[in-house]
């Protein structure tokens, strides 16, 4: 060691302050761009802001306007419907594929690649592709009609009652492979000896899955639920590309509502209020899930 004592203490001083110094730009950015901006949006939601932001307190007028807006309730109901079905089908399809792929499948690598590639695509690309597939004149409907089923109609994309379900179809297509990957990783992480012991006891394979393997996936299950509900609440690009929220407002979701009121209709206050409602929804859904996730992770 060649360092004199003064050099050594300089070193020590640097080591004490450098970590904090290095972290500080990111912390400052987080304070401003996350916490500060949330507060800013929150403040805007309590003002009379329309085309331009204003900062005088106006109470709950924007929330009142939001809750009296029928379109907002359409968007909220659609989010519930889309979110519920999207999560349900992603879980079912993902779990089924994971269990099937876990059976020492010959071409597992290739199949996994195929199931997962939609995750690499932008939701806009997915929406564009499915918009074409579901085209009532020239898409899948025509394929079935050409097969001889001349009465077959599949017009969900332009049917106000059904348009939101097309978003479910495309969303599940995009995200279920990812759920499969998470479940498969979970299944592979389970100790083989548990399975062997159950087999010795004479349990059949379906029973082993139903009673032992799938229940032990609880922590994975919560992570998946967390991610899927996050995707669902934020969903914007997919709906924009697939239905644009239409026909009419029939497939509107909160993210589109917020974007249009804040940026194309000049209703900043209502936009801010709807953004805050989205934040509350995320908190209300994610916090209990995170709590359950950490609890179940501890138990296993």
């Amino acid at each position: 060691m060649s360092g004199s004592s003064s050099q050594g203490s300089l070193h020590a001083l640097a080591d004490r302050w450098l970590p904090k110094l290095v972290l500080s730009p990111t912390l400052a950015a987080s304070l401003i761009f996350v916490y500060g901006f949330i507060a800013w949006t929150g403040w805007l939601s309590f003002t009379e802001s329309r085309l331009m932001p204003r900062y005088e307190w106006a109470g709950f007028v924007q929330y009142q306007a939001l809750f009296e807006n029928e379109r907002w309730w359409t968007a909220a109901a659609n989010l519930g419907l889309f979110g519920g079905l999207f999560i349900l089908f992603c879980l079912l399809v993902g779990l089924l594929m994971a269990v099937l792929l876990d059976q020492k499948i010959r071409a597992e690598g290739m199949l996994r690649t195929i199931y997962l590639y939609p995750m690499a695509l932008s939701f806009v690309v997915t929406g564009t592709a499915w918009k074409w597939m579901l085209n009532p004149d020239m898409g899948l409907q025509k394929v079935v009609v050409d097969l001889g089923f001349t009465d077959f109609t599949f017009d969900w994309l332009v049917n106000p009652d059904m348009a939101i379900y097309t978003v479910v179809i495309a969303g599940v297509w995009q995200s279920s492979g990812f759920v499969m990957a998470l479940f498969l990783a979970g299944l592979r992480g389970i100790d083989d000896s548990i399975i062997k012991a159950a087999q010795v006891d004479g349990a059949s394979l379906p029973t082993i899955y139903r009673r032992i393997l799938i229940p032990s996936l609880r922590p994975v299950f919560f992570s998946v639920l967390l991610i899927l509900s996050h995707i669902a609440i934020k969903s914007f690009d997919l709906v924009m590309a697939l239905t644009g929220g239409g026909p009419g407002n029939s497939s509107d979701v909160p993210a589109i509502f917020m974007y249009q009121f804040a940026f194309t209709r000049g209703q900043l206050g209502v936009g801010a209020a709807s953004a805050m409602m989205m934040l509350f929804t995320i908190v209300a859904v994610l916090v209990p899930l995170m709590y359950m996730e950490t609890r179940s992770a501890k138990r296993v």
């Binding site: 500060g36 800013w40 949006t41 934020k234 909160p254 974007y259 936009g271 801010a272 934040l279």
Partner: peptide, 13 residues
């Protein structure tokens, strides 16, 4: 926390 917020809540600022 920045990983979890819906970005709509920071768009206007």
């Amino acid at each position: 926390v920045g990983c979890f917020i819906p970005f709509q809540v920071v768009l206007l600022p």
